[in-house]
Computed example of a mutant assay.
Amino acid sequence: MDFRLTEDQRALRKGVRELLARLFDREALRAAVDRPSLDRELWRELGAAGFFALRVPEEEGGVGLGLPEAVLLFEEAGRVLVPGPLVATHVAAGVVPGAAEGEVVVTAVDEGLVPWLDEADVVLGDVTGAVPMRSVDPLTPLHKVPGTGGCAHPPPEGGPPRRAERLPTTVEAEVLPDGDELVAVLLTAAEQVGSAGATTELAVSYAGEREQFGQVIGGFQAVKHLCAGMLVRAELARVAVRAAAVTGDPVEIAGAKLLADEAATGNARDCLQVYGGMGFTWEADVHLYLKRAWVRARLRLPAARAEEVVAEQL
């Protein structure tokens, strides 16, 4: 089996990277941090580009590609930290009218949490009584479904009604085709891989510019080791995710999610170490990658459950 990217796949990845560079550059990222609301125009632009309809059959108006191509898209989205419930909307594109075109924003209950509930038009699953909770990631607002563990922070007395009570459409998760939950896990892992690759690039770039004791810090062995370890983590996770996209094996998908979560969180921490004191500042983007990686690791088959899936087959 040949896991190398085809010429068409490489062209797809290049096109998506160029599209996101135009639609969501660093300036847009920092603006989103300052004003954390979903950019509907960006969502529609992604829909028009086929981001959500990529796996919808051509006879149904979609692009007609497969999971390996979807993984490439989500790597690129993770690389630039595109905010919003991308995975849920993509997975629901063949089921929920308007999702494929980016006209409808879909979110889903996941591990007792609901990302972007206030911005969603459709929610998959029961969110009755969902309350907002403080999210570590400024670009991923969260609600918690009662009785699912964790720590939630309800709105003050007299505050606005909960979004769960105002949603125009609530859809049971079972309406999605079998296997789409695994697809969601793998696409989340792909986002983590993109994030791991981005923090590796950030660390290497900074190490080649920052000077200490008369030379760039990238010349120091300790920094070299950090950057080399980041590259190994990112590439190992990337290979695992792309292989699982080809095989579709549930155990391989669980293993890929484990590796991707480790790569995203570990690389963000090491990138922060390379940056030193500068990495702790709000102006640097490192903390945004670390916080998003933490949230993604908590969603879509978190480590404890993924480890059980893998261990059961050993």
Results as ranks from 00 to 15, higher is better:
147 G>H: 09
14 K>R: 13
110 D>W: 12
178 D>P: 15
188 T>F: 01
146 P>S: 11
190 A>Y: 04
243 A>G: 10
188 T>G: 12
41 E>C: 09
209 E>T: 14
237 A>E: 15
182 L>N: 12
19 L>G: 04
68 P>F: 02
221 Q>P: 05
213 F>T: 07
115 P>S: 10
56 V>C: 04
197 G>I: 00
16 V>P: 03
269 R>Y: 12
157 E>F: 12
91 V>H: 07
289 Y>E: 01
277 G>P: 10
314 L>I: 11
43 W>H: 09
4 R>C: 09
306 A>V: 02
288 L>F: 01
275 Y>T: 04
177 P>C: 13
259 L>W: 10
45 E>Y: 07
257 K>A: 04
185 V>C: 06
195 S>H: 11
127 V>P: 07
223 V>L: 03
268 A>G: 02
118 D>Q: 09
283 E>S: 12
74 F>P: 08
202 L>M: 15
33 V>D: 10
106 V>G: 01
169 T>M: 14
29 L>H: 05
234 A>E: 15
219 G>P: 00
137 D>R: 06
217 I>Q: 06
3 F>M: 11
77 A>D: 02
193 V>R: 01
117 L>G: 00
101 E>N: 10
303 A>K: 14
139 L>E: 06
201 E>R: 15
104 V>P: 06
189 A>N: 09
290 L>P: 07
176 L>I: 12
205 S>K: 13
256 A>P: 03
4 R>N: 14
66 G>I: 05
191 E>I: 00
247 T>F: 13
288 L>S: 06
295 V>L: 13
259 L>D: 04
158 G>L: 14
8 D>I: 00
213 F>D: 14
245 A>K: 07
161 P>Q: 04
260 A>H: 02
173 A>Y: 15
313 Q>F: 15
65 L>S: 03
196 A>C: 03
252 E>G: 12
12 L>M: 08
107 T>R: 01
186 L>M: 03
100 A>R: 11
98 G>A: 07
172 E>T: 04
182 L>K: 02
63 V>W: 08
49 A>L: 01
99 A>Y: 06
73 L>V: 06
97 P>C: 05
67 L>W: 05
282 W>F: 11
138 P>V: 05
283 E>H: 13
188 T>N: 14
47 G>D: 09
23 L>M: 08
112 G>I: 01
217 I>C: 06
129 G>T: 05
202 L>P: 00
136 V>T: 10
310 V>D: 09
218 G>D: 08
157 E>Q: 13
12 L>W: 15
149 G>I: 13
231 L>F: 14
20 L>H: 01
110 D>P: 08
284 A>Y: 06
10 R>L: 14
80 V>E: 12
265 T>I: 09
81 L>T: 01
296 R>S: 10
245 A>F: 02
144 K>C: 12
155 P>I: 04
6 T>L: 04
81 L>Y: 03
300 R>D: 11
110 D>C: 12
305 R>W: 09
119 E>A: 15
290 L>E: 03
293 A>R: 00
293 A>L: 10
80 V>N: 06
112 G>S: 05
203 A>Q: 04
218 G>E: 10
241 V>W: 07
72 L>G: 02
279 G>Q: 05
144 K>G: 14
277 G>H: 06
152 A>W: 08
109 V>P: 04
52 F>G: 01
